[in-house]
Amino acid sequence: MIERIPDLVNADANLVRRGRFLSTTFLMEIGNQGYLIKIIEGRIVSITPGPFVTPNYSFALRAPRDEWEMFWKKVPEPGHNDIFALFKRGKLTIEGDLHPFMANLLYIKDVLAAPRKEAKQ
């Protein structure tokens, strides 16, 4: 799922426009597997899977694999439809420099949810 994010985001000119002031690298953990997601001016330029030696990122989002899978369903169930729902249930943690995350929240939520566009169910 996660490897489809760059194509899905970069093909969406409106989403890229909304993220045009964001250039950062953040860490996403799906269970024990980490990925560094590099964004330049709203475009996803790379997703690099770990393991990492001294990873450098602004903020990290970590959740179990089954939570991300539920999150990426075409129509997610209640409690699984938004990363804030995952925070509230204690399933997703965020740490680091939250400024790029909060200042671009609507954009980042749509980047994270991009795999839903191709979900079968």
């Binding site: 804030f84 200042a103 929240l105 939520k109």
Partner: peptide, 15 residues
């Protein structure tokens, strides 16, 4: 340094 309207909408969008 964060747009108040944009972040407020971002916070509630998932609701």
């Amino acid at each position: 340094d964060v747009h108040g309207g944009e972040v407020s909408a971002g916070v509630v969008s998932g609701l």
